[in-house]
Design a binder for these strands. Structure first.
Lengths: 209, 209
DNA sequence: TCAATATATGAAGGATCATTCATCTTTGGG
DNA sequence: CCCAAAGATGAATGATCCTTCATATATTGA
């Protein structure tokens, strides 16, 4: 995610020695842990530092403030998700519409639910964070990835591919989050996921796929 | 929303005189205002009281603590949304599948986006709030409302209506939220809404509607 | 009109937190 | 081996907040 972060959210300095690289990693990990175990209103710089096994001061060497830490964390996470979806899309170039939809739904769903507590924690950390730039960049990346995939379909000819594409993504991303947040039994989650894929496929077919 | 709130979130006492009814209303309104103008991390009991034109002490006569206030606020809001969707569903008993889907998508979409800043503010207020009971109750109400509507269709016979119904709701609710949060231009929002209705309709048709 | 009850006040207590900075320790290239 | 730069420390500061309670005012039914 190379969205230029809002000025004030820039990291303070980059780790140069192996020691500090480890420190920064520990801080990220600790942030997730605290978020998970204590919730966002108990996510304290001191607590994070403590769990990371460093002192508060150290944290402030790399992040100018708490928000910057959370920003960086979200950036990292979205990057992982984006990469996985992109890879899944690339793998389907020239494939059938059916394979494309299946791959897209599966890739996104898994990326989000594999470590669902972490995902949940990050959703929470993002509230009240100026991360519009992050979300935008993510959306654009996903848009480009799926668009390229759809265009490579040998048997498809969409009337308005932009609209079809943005709809597809909105529906998939939205549904995943909704199911995810309702914390339904996993059997039901799986069933819905299948239905979703079916629904998207018939939508694409009807739209020229 | 009659979900028994977690014990600790119960309101402290009910307003009995006209005066205090007005006070409670003012507090609700003020909470939304503060949430809107200042964000959740500046949502302070003092600030809310100030904006409501009462003293902090007064707030604590009706809400045992901040969380209880936010809980009550969300309860109120979800109630409004639920009522509107229920009414929309009731109005379509016996109608065509097409009319049903259109009505459902429109009702929910409008309920959420009509005062979109308020919706956004409430989404934020709900984070880090023990409102699972609220969400569950809301989901159940919606489930019942749409299920009754679908069953009343003269021309439909769904293989597994439970799954179809829960999928439909997940997709609609999820998509609305996704589009909503991405803050797309309203022309595009409208276009996606139309696509969504189309998509749901073809899904229902294919499922036996 | 007059208690009894309901409602409102807001200063003060107690707690938590984000952030800084003077000081100390470690690292790695020469 | 040495030292300049990098990294780490954590007590202290200043600010903000939630919540309480002793006190004051308003309302209502009799």
């Amino acid at each position: 995610m190379q969205a230029a972060p809002p000025q004030h959210l820039n990291p303070r300095k980059r780790p140069r020695q192996a020691r500090s690289v480890a420190t920064v990693e520990a801080i990220f990990e600790a942030t997730i842990q605290v978020l998970l175990r204590e919730g966002i209103h108990r996510l304290t710089t001191t607590r994070v530092a403590e769990r990371a096994g460093v002192s508060v001061g150290t944290m402030y060497q790399y992040f100018p403030h708490k928000q910057a830490l959370l920003y960086a964390l979200n950036e990292h996470y979205l990057d992982l998700v984006a990469e996985r979806v992109e890879a899944a899309c690339r793998a389907q170039y020239g494939a059938s519409t059916e394979a494309m939809v299946e791959a897209l739904v599966t890739a996104y769903w898994q990326a989000k639910t594999e470590r669902s507590e972490v995902t949940r924690a990050l959703y929470r950390s993002a509230v009240e964070l100026d991360n519009e730039a992050l979300i935008d960049a993510f959306a654009k990346r996903m848009d480009a990835a799926t668009m390229a995939m759809l265009k490579s379909a040998p048997d498809a000819d969409y009337a308005s591919i932009d609209l079809v594409n943005v709809t597809l993504l909105s529906v998939i991303f939205g549904t995943v989050r909704n199911v995810f947040e309702r914390n339904l039994p996993s059997a039901q989650q799986l069933a819905i996921r299948r239905q979703l894929a079916t629904m998207c496929l018939s939508y694409l077919k009807a739209s020229g796929g």
